[in-house]
Structure formats: structure tokens, C-alpha cells
Amino acid sequence: MKPLKLILTGVFAAVLVSGCAGTAPVRNVSQQVAGSHSDAQVRQAILSAGLNRGWIMNPSADGVIDGKILLRGHSADIRITYNTNSYQINYVGSGNMDAKDGKIHPNYNRWVANLDKDIQLELARQNIK
């Protein structure tokens, strides 16, 4: 029984350590818009996806939306530029995310990947309507 307990303790410790993966390169997204969409439709897809994911979305100019997310003492700021053909999600800044030398906590990249996926889904929904 003791060897099994020792193995399980080791596996648990390895899982905990791997969960604290350190940092990863900041992920900026450049995505083509599939189908035919107006600027207003792309804007609406970005706003809807962001709000559904908990981002605070603020249209700051034509073709530009600033986003901010606040989770468990962490924050990230992004700028999304868009037109009828494409959009880009770019890192602007963060708080408590270990950002340094182009690297950041991996959660940031996950948040941006989820936002990107949801924008694509919103755009696809618009094509169905």
C-alpha cells in the first residue's frame, strides 16, 4: 500500500508543478474573415464574443475595439483592429501576469484563443442567418 501511496503522491506533485508552467510567448492573433461581412457585422461579432467571454469591450475608433479582462487578481488589455476581411488581436498590457520580454502567463494565451474561437463562431452564425 505504501508504494501506491508514494506513486500517487508523486503523480499529484507532478500535476501541480506542471500547472505552474511559467510563461509562454505572447500570442497575437491575425485572422481572415470567412464569408462576406460588413464592418458592422464584424464589429458585432467581436463585441458579442468578448462580452460572452467576460471581456470589457470598448469601441475606441472605427475599426478598433479595446478589450480588458479581470480574473482572480489578473488583468489583460488587448486591442482588436478589424475590417470586412480580417481582424487582429494584439497584446497591449497586463497586470499580475508575469509579462516580460515578450512572454506572459499561459492563461493569457488561452483567454485570447478562446476569444478568437468565439469571434469565428459569431461570424459563422451570421452567415447562417
Rank of each mutant, 00 (worst) to 15 (best):
V29K: 04
M1A: 11
N58P: 01
I119S: 01
R110I: 13
T23N: 02
Y87A: 11
V42F: 04
L71R: 14
R27C: 06
R27A: 12
S75R: 09
W55V: 04
G19H: 10
V26M: 07
V15G: 00
R79S: 14
I128T: 13
I69N: 11
K5T: 08
V15I: 15
S94K: 02
Q120M: 11
I80R: 03
K5Q: 12
N58K: 15
E122K: 10
Y91A: 05
H37I: 00
Q41T: 06
G35L: 06
C20F: 14
H37K: 03
S38W: 00
H37T: 06
A45Y: 01
S36A: 11
N58E: 15
G54H: 03
I89K: 05
D116C: 05
A13P: 01
A49Q: 02
L16Y: 05
R79Y: 03
E122N: 11
K117V: 03
A13G: 08
T23P: 07
Q120E: 14
S38D: 11
I78E: 01
I46Q: 01
L70Q: 15
P106L: 04
N85V: 09
G93S: 14
P25V: 03
G93M: 09
H74Y: 04
M57R: 10
R27D: 09
S75K: 08
V92A: 14
S48M: 10
K68D: 05
G67F: 06
G50H: 05
I104S: 01
L4S: 12
G10W: 04
G19I: 08
T81G: 02
R43F: 02
M97H: 00
K129Q: 10
A24R: 10
L6N: 09
I46A: 07
A61S: 14
C20L: 13
R27M: 14
R110H: 13
I80L: 08
Y87T: 07
L6P: 00
V33W: 06
A45E: 04
G22P: 06
Q44H: 08
D116G: 07
N83R: 07
A40Q: 13
L123R: 01
S60V: 14
S36C: 02
V33H: 03
Y82P: 00
L4M: 09
G19T: 08
N127E: 15
